[in-house]
Computed example of a mutant assay.
Amino acid sequence: MTKNDFLNKSKTFSVLLALFFSTCLFAQQNDIPPETENQFWKNVQFGGGIGLGFGSGYTDISLAPSAIYNFNQYVALGVGAQYKYLKQKDFYASHLYGGSVIGLFNPINQIQLSAELEQLRVNVNLDGSNSNSQDYWNTGLFLGAGYRSGNATIGARYNVLSDKNNIYGSAFMPFIRVYF
């Protein structure tokens, strides 16, 4: 047997061996029953909030998408992102952006309790003075309760970490939460 014959037979054997193993690997792909493949996405809900506020020299634009995973009819856990632009003419302009983690508990179908940890980066530019611009992190821990009907919940939440430097006007805030 010459060297070329040996190389040709080795190549043929290698190709046949690769085809055999690839066929075995493809045969293993459909072991998951079709009803369990998409079970994760059946338990995911998307929602969030959009806000627009305009006044005499005042602008407030916010976008806050979020998603939750329902472990069962009582407990859900999710994440969210947030961006907010605030401007008061001749005074300041600010950008707030960050994320949050939310836990929801429904002891009965109509009541929803929530805990949300929010971390926002705050950039405030005071007009007329760059030296007074501020750039800092703000953390909030909100505990809330609401009345739930279908996909919507209306209620109130309280920031237990609120202090005099809070970026919100008050530690107590009403909310409307909708997930589809």
Results as ranks from 00 to 15, higher is better:
Y85A: 12
P107G: 04
Q112R: 12
S149G: 02
N125W: 07
A93N: 15
A81L: 14
S114G: 13
Y69M: 09
V75W: 11
R121D: 00
A152S: 13
T139Y: 08
V124I: 15
A152C: 07
S170L: 02
G98K: 04
T139F: 12
L161N: 03
K84P: 04
Y69V: 11
A152Y: 03
W137L: 11
H95I: 03
Y136S: 11
S100R: 06
N165Q: 15
G98W: 08
Y92L: 09
V160I: 15
Y136N: 03
D90Y: 11
I102Q: 05
G169I: 07
N159W: 00
S133V: 08
G144L: 09
V79T: 09
G78H: 14
F142Y: 12
G155R: 00
G144Y: 12
V124P: 06
L126E: 11
A81R: 02
N151E: 02
I111M: 05
Y74S: 15
Q112E: 10
E116Y: 05
N165V: 12
D90K: 08
S149M: 12
T139A: 02
N130Y: 15
N165G: 12
A67M: 15
Y158D: 02
L161T: 02
Q112D: 06
Q110D: 07
Y158Q: 03
Y147Q: 06
L161D: 09
D135S: 14
F91R: 14
G99N: 05
N159I: 02
G99R: 01
A93F: 08
S129H: 14
K84R: 15
V160N: 00
G103A: 13
P174Y: 12
P174K: 03
V122R: 05
Q119K: 00
H95E: 03
L117W: 15
F105W: 06
K84L: 11
Q112G: 00
Q119W: 04
V124K: 14
N165C: 07
L120I: 06
S133L: 04
G80R: 07
F105M: 01
Q119S: 06
Y147K: 02
G146H: 01
Q110L: 05
S170I: 01
A145W: 04
I68T: 06
N72A: 08
W137N: 14
G146N: 00
K87F: 03
K89R: 12
A93G: 10
I111G: 00
